[in-house]
């Protein structure tokens, strides 16, 4: 589905470059700490839980469920639905729900990642399964 919204271009940095390189390949990456075993998002070099620097990239299934959402009824680019998705791998992330009837969203609904283009690397969004 065409999306009329122009999304900001992720600027990236040495800490997150791999994430964006993989997004170009259609992959959603998370970070996992090999010291404490916890996964986190967005990616950090040092684990936000145990502060170990032994964090590794992991490909997410891109599947999860809606933790919460809110449909913004009006904006310069029309209505949009913001929310949090809890990924199968554990971490929750902020996103928008797209390519769907946004008035029918429900907490607990199953969703999957879909990438949307920018002038740079694409950005992860979610859509109901």
């Amino acid at each position: 589905m065409d999306n009329p919204v122009k999304y900001p271009t992720p600027q990236g940095n040495p800490e997150t470059k791999h994430f964006w390189d993989q997004a170009v390949e259609g992959k959603l990456l998370i970070k996992r700490c090999t010291a404490c075993g916890e996964a986190h998002y967005f990616p950090r070099a040092i684990c936000p839980f145990c502060f170990s620097d032994k964090t590794v990239w992991e490909e997410s299934s891109g599947e999860g469920e809606i933790y919460t959402f809110s449909l913004m009824r009006k904006s310069a680019t029309g209505p949009y639905a913001i929310g949090y998705v809890t990924l199968k791998e554990g971490p929750s992330l902020l996103t928008n729900f797209v390519d769907c009837d946004q008035t029918k969203l429900k907490i607990g609904q199953k969703v999957k990642v879909v990438f949307k283009t920018t002038d740079g690397p694409p950005l992860p969004f979610f859509t109901p399964v």
């Binding site: 999304y7 900001p8 992720p10 600027q11 990236g12 997150t16 964006w20 998002y41 967005f42 919460t68 959402f69 809110s70 449909l71 913004m72 904006s75 949009y80 913001i82 929310g83 949090y84 992330l93 902020l94 996103t95 928008n96 907490i107 920018t118 950005l123």
Partner: peptide, 19 residues
């Protein structure tokens, strides 16, 4: 980079809490 595109405003993030 991981959040700006999703349009978090005061209204909708407090809306998410209420929901």
């Amino acid at each position: 980079d991981f959040e700006a595109a999703y349009g978090a405003t005061t209204h909708n993030v407090y809306g998410m809490c209420a929901m």
